[in-house]
Design a protein around this nucleic acid. Sequence first.
DNA 1: TTGGCAACCTGTAACGTTTCAGTATACTGA
DNA 2: TCAGTATACTGAAACGTTACAGGTTGCCAA
Lengths: 347, 347
Amino acid sequence: MDRRVTKKDDDASRTERPTLKTLAFMTGLGVTTVSRALKDAPEIGAETRRRVQLVAKQIGYRPNRAGVRLRTGKTNVISLVLNTEHELMSFVSDIIYGVTEVIADTPYHLIVTPYSRSQDPLDPVRYLVETGSADGVIISRTQPNDPRARYMLERGIPFATHGRTDMGLVHPYHDFDNYTFAGEAVRYLAGRGRNRLALVTPPVGLTYYGHTVNGFADALSEVGASEVPFNTVSIDQSIEQIRMRTAQLMRRKDRPDGFVSSAAAATLAIVAGIEDAGLELGRDVDVVSKQSSELLHLFRRELLVVNENFRLAGSELARAVLGWIGGADPGSLQSLSTPSEVLPYRG
Amino acid sequence: MDRRVTKKDDDASRTERPTLKTLAFMTGLGVTTVSRALKDAPEIGAETRRRVQLVAKQIGYRPNRAGVRLRTGKTNVISLVLNTEHELMSFVSDIIYGVTEVIADTPYHLIVTPYSRSQDPLDPVRYLVETGSADGVIISRTQPNDPRARYMLERGIPFATHGRTDMGLVHPYHDFDNYTFAGEAVRYLAGRGRNRLALVTPPVGLTYYGHTVNGFADALSEVGASEVPFNTVSIDQSIEQIRMRTAQLMRRKDRPDGFVSSAAAATLAIVAGIEDAGLELGRDVDVVSKQSSELLHLFRRELLVVNENFRLAGSELARAVLGWIGGADPGSLQSLSTPSEVLPYRG
DNA sequence: TTGGCAACCTGTAACGTTTCAGTATACTGA
DNA sequence: TCAGTATACTGAAACGTTACAGGTTGCCAA
């Protein structure tokens, strides 16, 4: 018998990684039996099952991902799709950590799929779906009418969005309640006697832009304050732009006496602009800002902040995708995070 | 002939993803020929090669990753190994973006492999190597004698480290020249008449701790300034800790008149501590800090900053790993990033 | 005794790819 | 003419896994 071709027939004690074949040889069972025993199939005898699992644990058997993936199509991969061209998305690492926290004791791996501003945001998603590169996808920068969500819904691939859509379609999401945030910010400023307020909005076109604007507007009319239009600025502009525009605005006679800012980095620029115009934070103007790390109070103690927890967002999103993959009802995998109170000056 | 079992024998016009079989059927060639034609093997006729590649492009053929991986062991995956329990690692997103930039037009995917502080940092690396989950690995928080680097070197798996090691072993790395940074910082402070300097160090144990401390010490004796010991603080402590310790220090008679800080977040805390003690930045004390985004000048215009580009680090690290995978000499894949000048006050 | 059935186990094929060991054809030189 | 050889292609096997379609026992009812 020619033994030249087959590298390892039954010499299971190699330094190689153990496979089902190794286990089969060691237990004296068939490969099929071992496979089923490991996944607790009912038609395998209880003792056999225990025996196989014991041996598997002993020799540190780990299923070969490529084998599983080729055979079943299951990738055990979650993809986080990110825009790489936004300057100050420091919260990205928090989202990633949140996701990894949840998938840590699952067989899932996290892959990061980037796209640049010049690309159609649908491109990376299409790539993932067409190549079957992931069992589930997480997207951010969600729009009210989001082609990516629609696409994945059509293709039946589980996903979760950071931010809601508004298409009458149901899918998992996690969102921060920006309507409430903006409203609370306005009410807080009104409570401090501020009544000419400007809003630094999220990027136009994203769903939470609308939420924020509405929360701001509704609360304005509720408290009887007025809006100082500041539409030339949104948070994904450059620091320099925001700073310059803010300084311009603050030099006008009809300048605002309060700001609501949707992002910490923008807030730094706003404060700089305010001071460029020779005004003083806390005296001439108050600023309420969202932040994702606890740094703004160090920056200027007069800043008023509301915390948004991106690590939580990552966890929730991961839980949602895994839930959907696991067969749960997508409608039950939606969560909304309530803003903290507005936190006042601190020493 | 029973056609029940085989799902698609030659019905290549399905909506399914095209495979080599599909291409073989369409071109009338054998699967082997198609496979070789696609990778420009010389033993395939020039015309056949072009024909196959044309058809492949037309129908959007993409090799099945699981198939390749199972057959060849090549995963086409790079793993970035990250510690998830460090509060303010906002630069992580920059590294990730840098990496994705480089692998964007390669077949590589980026997976993020986390580990928490409670774990042995070797664990995730061992997992990756044992399960063959990646062709290359990037690690950070590198130590002079780094068990992870040693382990991967033994196993022969390509990797790159963010930060150098000091074990007499050669491997790809990218590092920021923290020796020069600390030295320049000291010289700059000395030039401003500061001569009692404190250093806020990187985490003890990491390689660049040593570089920084040495650069600081050497420059101190060069300019004839003295060190105010501040060993109770390093940059991966909490903001509150650093702030409190700084305030304590600044209330002492022998307080420093200059700080060199290895991280932006720590710098915020230091400044807060300075001000807690009733002192004024720029008047009573100067601070030189590294930063990875352009925010510190907004924070206090009196801050002196040196920029460290983490996106570049990510790119360089990715290039290094890919280079090693591609067979390049590891010794040729090392790069050191030179600090920018110390940037002074700005309006 | 026999047929039926449940319990438990197994071999084969297939997922898509690459490698090995060829085969067929045409061309070369003597 | 014929061996030798270069060129261009090909089928089969293998990577590790799971699904399918059985196969063997042993037991029970009739």
